[in-house]
Design a protein around this nucleic acid. Structure first.
Length: 874
RNA sequence: GGGUGAUUAGCUCAGUUGGUUAGAGCAUCUCGUUUACACCGAGAGGGUCAGGGGUUCGAAUCCCUUAUCACCCACCA
């Protein structure tokens, strides 16, 4: 039934209900046929949505809808990322709880608060609960957050099959993350090692190279004098005098003539009186500071490198708290009064220890010159706000080529196999792989995450045997080693000599996220059936859509895991979306407070309008937030439903009753007029080009050419054939076939509905619903490109007709005449070839332009067409 | 310091392997229209393609160079 007035207002809710009820976007598991599978990014549920999400998720949905129209069986799942620090913090504050790995699991636990801002609680007011209870609370809260996300995604029109959803902390994800870890372990791809590494003192966890962020941090150069055996001094510059007690050597470049004769000699540190060697190493830079550096345990990663390469002793005074940690039994390398001084520093922060040492340096006359302020780049954990320290700890690693050139080369090769869109994004991948300096540190000393499925034996003497971890059976996964026990042992043997102890660390959140293809393609949680056949069908997946900022993390780590486990890429294509910038061209982010929330935009402009805005930006290109584009999108949707109403209102009743499928089949034979065929020749070409653009992941180009044809169709073709379609006559003019006009309009409407459907799915569905029962989004009509009605007629005539229409309209406009003003004659200068070409369209032209007399042609040798003069009718 | 991308009309952006007079939308101005669409239509004005140099019959497009912007990597002496 055609509506009285066509509109896009209020159409979304009923359409969404129909889509759900009919399960329109179902992945057809049992059907054979070409599959297109999408590794949808699971959004972080602890954050709120902003327009940037709409942007990139729309890009993915455009592809999903296009592939469906082309006959692919599209697998489009949705995940939710609730694993990791952001959720951990949110759950703490929301429920007023703190995880504590010494607590036991309580069934039916009720948290003290719900929805409270726990930031206002004092430390002792939090409820300390077990990791398992904490994970339960997280799953509960995430479910609530997910409902909101889902509502917004649906409102936006994402064609996700909601039967296939997962959380990165749910049982299935934990099982797969643990299973994959155990497989890496047995393949020798995962290992543990005690070594110095970057440590966040606020979060009390080790962090990985991928999570580092270099920030400018203020510091002060102190010039400190060390004393040689002959009484002369060697001055070094340091920004960290508080590490003086940790000094193990002074190091200069082997080519540095200033220090060459000192290599092999020793000097004594001021205050502490420790004798340290002067050594040569190529990592020392002659042009930095004094050109000779104080090497400590550990001031920075270069210190670690020197410590390793030069086999230097370990002299640690800074602990995991970021404070000086020394007691009676430590720091044996320092003796006498100096030792008493050092003990006085115990418990001081690096900052206050520094000022005490500086005072002491001044007192002993070892501080030379002025203290010079400086700004330097320092490594931070991306979520932290204190500079990272380096501490020694036992951690788990996964090999990533960071210290293995063969693996590195293999991973670069994987990158070459992957189709990056746009292709220059591959450079970022290459840069990252080639710049890796260590294996991937995957253990975190946190609480909320996937546990390592491991225990260790405790020997009779109470020493923990880390070398041979106890592992569970794969079929028992997921397990929590804090609750479950290893085979052949029971709870009574936990943490006693001769018994076992749990691995207490959890995996880094990326260690789970890097498995999203494995999680998404495993079906057993949904169907109760084995996964293998499904996995074989879906993996490697077709597409990974994601942001450019997480190439080094999510994209790389996923490639790495699939390389290790499956010896293949995880997907064939990677579609990288750009940023959304605010109007000042700054990146939109929560911390800058310039985020625009999407729900009210959806309400003002409608889903199709927001999708239009997102669709008009190409992949990989940053885009300014622009409400103007949304208005245009809304206009397009409105224009479309009005066009549809017009075209359909012209059709005989039986055509509307038979529906689009039948009508489309029958309409071609009724298209007899050459100009109608020519218009459709153009449209078929647009369709081919749009398909090609989509196949190359250039949705913006597909939209541009489709939209451009659409407006020219409305302005020129519809105006051209309107009167013929109505069956109207004009004096002195022979009208053509109105049947042909009706059929051409109908075919053009159907084809354009399909081309526009990915961009404005609601408006196209609305118009479709007036005369069809099913959804246009799973229509089978354009699985193959549409053949033009008459291969002997090309698009030139319609282009020429459009041009003549424009020329005459311009004349009328310049003369400030109404477009309806009747003209007696119009004389055109035009080439003989074009005169011939134009002949079949003359009647339509005269009617559309209201030329009551005739169009006269003056033959011209130029290919240009020009209006020579015209005469108004009486 | 190394790298990637960008720079085209007042604004947002197209411009396919080099090929007539560089395009679109928004905004501006003019005019029109109420039986598909006033959430409308027709038309006009507006550009030294960031600057400089080169290759070529011909450059927005290829090469070199400079500048500006954004981002990535490295940089704790």
């Amino acid at each position: 039934m055609l509506p009285e007035k066509a509109t896009v207002d209020g159409i979304e809710q009923p359409i969404l209900e129909r889509w759900s009820a009919d399960d329109v976007y179902a992945y057809k598991r049992e059907v054979s046929g070409e599959i297109y599978s999408i590794d949808t990014p699971p959004p972080t549920v602890s954050g709120s949505l902003h327009v940037g999400h709409i942007f990139s998720y729309t890009h993915t949905d455009l592809i999903a809808r296009y592939k469906r129209l082309r006959g692919f069986n599209v697998f489009y799942p949705m995940g939710f990322d609730d694993n990791g620090l952001p959720t951990e913090r949110r759950v703490q504050n929301y429920y007023g709880v703190r995880p504590d790995i010494t607590k036991s699991y309580i069934s039916n636990y009720k948290p003290p608060f719900t929805g409270t801002d726990g930031k206002n609680l004092k430390a002792n007011e939090y409820d300390s609960i077990s990791r398992a209870n904490f994970i339960e609370l997280c799953e509960k809260l995430s479910k609530e957050d997910e409902a909101q996300f889902k509502e917004l995604w649906m409102r936006l029109g994402l064609s996700v099959d909601w039967k296939y959803t997962y959380q990165t902390i749910d049982k299935r994800s934990r099982r797969i993350a643990q299973k994959m870890f155990l497989r890496h372990l047995s393949a020798g791809l995962a290992y543990q090692m005690e070594s110095p590494g970057l440590w966040d003192v606020s979060f009390q966890t080790a962090v990985a190279q991928a999570e580092l962020e270099a920030r400018e941090y203020p510091g002060f150069y102190h010039s400190v004098a060390f004393t040689s055996t002959d009484g002369s001094t060697v001055e070094i510059e340091t920004t960290r005098p508080e590490l003086l007690a940790s000094c193990v050597a002074l190091i200069a470049h082997p080519d540095d003539e200033r220090y060459q004769k000192l290599f092999g000699t020793t000097v004594t540190s001021p205050i502490f009186g420790v004798e340290v060697p002067i050594l040569a190493h190529e990592a020392a830079q002659m042009d930095k500071g004094a050109g000779i550096a104080m090497c400590c345990t550990f001031g920075d990663l270069t210190d670690v490198q020197w410590w390793r390469d030069l086999k230097l002793p370990t002299r640690s005074v800074i602990g995991r708290s970021g404070r000086i940690e020394v007691d009676e039994n430590s720091a044996a390398w320092i003796t006498g009064d100096a030792r008493n001084f050092l003990l006085k520093l115990n418990g001081k922060t690096a900052f206050s220890a520094r000022s005490m040492i500086v005072e002491e340096l001044k007192a002993v006359g070892a501080l030379r010159g002025e203290i010079v302020p400086t700004k330097r780049m320092t490594n931070f954990y991306e979520k932290g706000d204190k500079p990272l320290e380096i501490v020694t700890s036992r951690q788990w690693y996964i090999k990533n080529g960071g210290n293995n050139d063969e693996l590195r080369k293999e991973l670069v090769k994987r990158g070459e196999e992957l189709n990056f869109v746009p292709s220059f994004m591959r450079t970022r991948y290459d840069n990252w792989v080639l710049g890796l300096s260590s294996d991937w540190l995957v253990s975190r000393q946190r609480f909320f995450g996937v546990a390592f499925p491991l225990w260790y034996r405790i020997r009779k003497d109470g020493v923990i045997d880390y070398d041979k971890p106890l592992v569970p059976d794969e079929n028992a996964l997921p397990i929590d080693p804090l609750i479950d026990t290893p085979a052949g042992m029971d709870e009574s043997m936990r943490d006693i000599p001769g018994g076992f102890t749990a691995e207490k660390d959890v995996m880094d959140t990326w260690a789970t996220s890097s498995l999203t293809p494995h999680i998404a393609c495993g079906f057993e949680e949904h169907t109760g059936q084995t996964t293998h056949a499904d996995f074989e069908q879906l993996f490697p997946m077709s597409l990974r859509p994601q942001g450019q900022d997480i190439i080094r993390t999510w994209l790389f780590s996923t490639v790495l895991r699939a390389h290790h486990e499956n010896n293949s890429l995880p997907w064939k294509n990677a579609a990288i979306s750009g940023w959304i910038l605010d109007p000042d061209r700054k990146k939109m982010s929560k911390s800058k407070g310039n985020v625009v929330t999407p729900m009210h935009l959806l309400e003002i402009y409608g889903s199709d309008a927001l999708r239009y805005w997102a669709a008009s930006a190409r992949l990989g290109v940053d885009s300014a937030f622009d409400e103007g584009q949304m208005k245009i999108g809304r206009r397009l949707a409105m224009k479309f439903v009005n066009l549809a109403k017009f075209v359909l209102s012209m059709q005989p009743t039986h055509v509307l009753e038979q529906g689009a499928q039948e009508a489309f089949k029958n309409a071609f034979s009724g298209i007899t007029e050459v100009v109608d065929k020519s218009m459709l020749a153009n449209l078929c070409e647009v369709q081919r080009n749009a398909f090609e653009a989509f196949d190359n992941y250039n949705h913006a180009h597909a939209l541009e050419i489709t939209e451009s044809f659409f407006w020219s169709f409305c302005d020129d073709f519809v105006e051209l054939v309107k009167k013929r379609a109505y069956g109207e006559q004009q004096e002195n003019v022979q009208t053509g076939s109105s049947i042909s006009a009706e059929n051409a309009l109908l075919v053009a409407l159907i084809l354009q509905s399909h081309l526009l459907a990915p961009f404005i799915p609601f408006a196209t569905e609305e118009a479709w619903s007036w005369w069809n029962t099913g959804s246009i989004h799973i229509s089978t009509m354009i699985h193959k490109p549409t053949a033009q009605p008459d291969a002997s007629v090309d698009g030139e005539l319609f282009k020429l007709v459009s041009l003549v229409l424009q020329l005459v309209r311009r004349i009328k406009s310049e003369q400030k005449l109404s477009m309806k003003t009747p003209l007696k004659t119009v004389r055109l200068s035009i080439s003989s070839k074009n005169i011939e070409l134009l002949k079949p369209a003359l009647n339509d032209l005269c009617m559309a332009l209201n030329v009551v007399g005739k169009l006269e042609f003056v033959e011209s040798t130029s290919s240009e067409i020009e209006v020579l003069d015209f005469e108004l009718a009486q």
